[in-house]
Write a protein that binds this DNA or RNA. Structure first.
Lengths: 228, 228
DNA sequence: ATCAAAAGTTAAGAATTCCTTAAGAAATTC
DNA sequence: GAATTTCTTAAGGAATTCTTAACTTTTGAT
């Protein structure tokens, strides 16, 4: 997910960038409204964080301009906490606002909330949430896995790994791939963490873990869930 | 789709029949509980509309009898609107109820809603207002919750949380999900609020809160109400 | 074919994270 | 202002995750 942070205060923009990147988002920056609009043409942006007070083109004007062409979720940052500003911001097309000084955790929560809402609308109930291969079924809504109809309990990490592999049965994921997707951070030195988890998953979903039917290894490459 | 209308009042039964046939359903009639049971043997019935007050065998007795053998969705018609009757009907195995005098459109909406539950089709025109799982019943119209037929008092927040979970039994909601839906704002500080409410709810609806039958935790993910 | 290196598997315990629970403060309702 | 409800805090317990290290299989170089 790509987020555009638009603030002339370099310090604040950088701080936000770090917090968001820490959450796994890709962050682009813009120092004013004009830059922001330019960035939108260059990158696919999924959410905008926009400061109100900026030189050249302020946040209000920029928001209006952006809303003429895009429906990207937009969170407004305002130094003042007057209701006046908030109302103005929301009327103009912002989806939410946060007042400075703000709690980074709050900003992140609101970012997630907006992205959730936005992506939920696009795929309302349409998104697939049941993945099957052979007698192995994963229901992502119920967080439920069954093998031959028998429910199997997986821990959160185990679940995430299996879901990743099952969302694309047959596709091989390297250990680095898995680490990045599941932990949301580049695999710096994942000893054999992933392998251990794989073992635990096999223990639970395979009849005979030594001759796995579903969760196969591809030597020197990674792991996959067989497409059956 | 075949619907059985069971009411000794011929006028009402005929009126219902016409409305339902107008919607494309095939309607069978029965004047009392005994007739209803006889009809069930002869035709494949997909939904039952059952009046409470009837000669020979009343609706309550008939419902109990029917539930011994069938899981057909059943909507109860009651002349009285007292809470007592509603609770009784639901505990006995009815899936929904409508009080006389009723709006035909409401009845049809509830019929569709029930059929949808069992066939998993269509769109949401009428939101369901009775949610059941095991012996736990939530009636959103009366804001009433019963466990084993015993009404339990929940505070507003507790009620909202339980309703959210019961509207989709089996589905897992993260703490953030719950916070957002119940408080209508994203959660950002690592609080414990939801967990405390969950505890309080368990205290009230569970026999043994330490081994909850209904309100389960899914480790590292969130909470759900078991689909029973 | 044989051996060493590389890659994968497995087990066990320490470290960490997450959930539960109780008690009291703060806020709200009556 | 008393009662009820909601929120915060913190300790304790339970479950999960990670690390370590020995072991097995595969690969490929000799």
């Amino acid at each position: 997910m790509n987020i555009l942070v638009c603030d002339d205060d370099k310090e604040i923009a950088d701080a936000i960038k770090i917090y968001l990147e820490n959450e796994g988002y890709t962050v682009f920056k813009a120092a004013d409204g004009l830059e922001a609009i330019a960035q939108l043409d260059q990158h696919e942006i999924h959410l905008i964080i926009m400061d109100i007070m900026m030189p050249k083109m302020d946040g209000i004007k920029a928001t209006v301009k952006i809303r003429e062409e895009h429906q990207i979720p937009l969170i407004m940052l305002s130094a003042k906490s007057e209701d006046y500003d908030k109302i103005l911001g929301l009327n103009i097309g912002a989806d939410d606002y946060v007042t400075k000084p703000f709690n980074p955790l709050e900003l992140i929560a609101r970012v997630k909330s907006q992205l959730r809402r936005y992506t939920a609308l696009g795929s309302m109930e349409m998104k697939q949430h049941v993945y099957k291969t052979g007698e192995l079924i994963l229901d992502d809504e119920q967080k439920l896995i069954t093998v031959d109809g028998e429910p199997v309990h997986l821990t959160p990490v185990q679940y995430k790994i299996l879901r990743l592999l099952m969302m694309n049965t047959g596709r091989v994921y390297s250990i680095e791939d898995i680490y990045e997707k599941v932990w949301n951070e580049p695999s710096f030195n994942p000893e054999n963490t992933v392998a251990v988890h794989i073992r635990k998953i096999r223990e639970k979903i395979e009849i005979n873990p030594k001759e796995p039917k579903y969760l196969k290894v591809v030597w020197g490459v990674g792991y996959k869930v067989e497409k059956i």
